[in-house]
Design a protein around this nucleic acid. Structure first.
Length: 294
DNA sequence: CCCCAGGTAGGGT
DNA sequence: ACCCTACATGGG
């Protein structure tokens, strides 16, 4: 990886990276595609525009410090996706098409709080509706960060703010029956997350421990906890099974087990630390198929 | 009218 | 431990 910074713009040379797929594969909900093909998003309270030219990822405006402390972790640029891809194909030849279609996808490392609220919304819901709900929360309760092409950008609201909004306020952002879960989780978040961070020191089976703790939050079950771990906590040995993954795995994999639980366990054994990446490839392929055939 | 969506909680065996 | 169902909401 080679990084150049000139007048607030970073140019990062990267292999195995596709910006559009990474931002549009359904793991994040706060990026907007501009007319020129670039993307503008809000991450950790910062507005940034990202574009890709061949093997160059261009970020603006950023400082060198931010590139190292925020953007490289966020886009997961240090991880060796070349060898993960190879491992996935060795373990599962039936992943070939998904790996081709999704080549260049990276697993983002997003904010745990934002990821938790977003994926509670995701349960039994549609992606466009999730996106709209998250935008509603940001517009109403997030700090105004300044004007963009389509209006003001807002930070994702803090726990201090969201723990004080009413049940009706959650419902007005399209939470539906999840409103009660979201309200309770917002209330508990700061204390609960503090306890989760304490566990980090023990280091043993961190992924499982974090997951169990996340599932203590209302609205967080086995699938959502896996998503938070994967997209928000940097735990890559996760394989969230939803309706798309279930269908795709059963269609592609002759020996696929029956239940979601068994599918998850087999995938974790098969792919190890590349499980999250493999899952995202399948999800992207399933949805890409849907879009291109309609 | 129906069924579906990045499932979960609560109740029952 | 496993099965069953209700759950808001909007689009197809």
């Amino acid at each position: 990886m080679n990084i150049m910074i000139t007048s607030g713009q970073a140019v990062i040379e990267m292999k195995h990276f596709d910006l559009a797929k990474t931002l549009e594969c359904g793991q994040c909900f706060r990026w907007h595609k501009n007319q020129d093909g670039s993307y503008t998003g809000v991450v950790q309270g910062r507005i940034v525009t990202a574009r890709q030219k061949a093997d160059q990822l261009i970020l603006n405006p950023v400082s060198l410090d931010e590139v190292e402390s925020l953007w490289i972790p966020y886009f997961d640029l240090q991880r060796d996706y070349g060898s993960m891809n190879k491992l996935v194909l060795e373990q599962a030849p039936w992943m070939k098409k998904a790996a081709d279609v999704g080549a260049g996808i990276r697993i983002l490392k997003q904010d745990p709080w934002e990821t938790t609220i977003t994926f509670i919304f995701s349960a039994n819901n549609h992606i466009p509706r999730i996106t709209a709900s998250v935008a509603c929360l940001a517009n109403r309760y997030g700090v105004n960060l300044g004007e963009g092409e389509l209006g003001p950008f807002h930070a994702f609201p803090t726990p201090e703010v969201l723990r004080q909004i009413s049940l009706a306020a959650w419902q007005q952002c399209g939470a539906g029956y999840r409103a009660a879960y979201l309200m309770k989780t917002a209330e508990q978040w700061e204390n609960h997350y503090k306890n989760m961070r304490k566990v980090s020191s023990s280091k043993k089976e961190l992924t499982t421990r974090h997951r169990r703790m996340l599932e203590m939050l209302p609205g967080v079950g086995p699938k959502v906890s896996a998503c938070i771990n994967l997209y928000g906590m940097g735990h890559h040995k996760q394989f969230p099974v939803d309706v798309w993954i279930r269908r795709r795995v059963k269609a592609l994999w002759p020996e696929a087990p029956d239940t979601d639980r068994e599918i998850e366990q087999s995938a974790l054994r098969l792919f190890g630390n590349a499980a999250g990446y493999a899952q995202q490839l399948l999800f992207y392929e399933a949805r890409f198929k849907k879009h291109s055939t309609l």
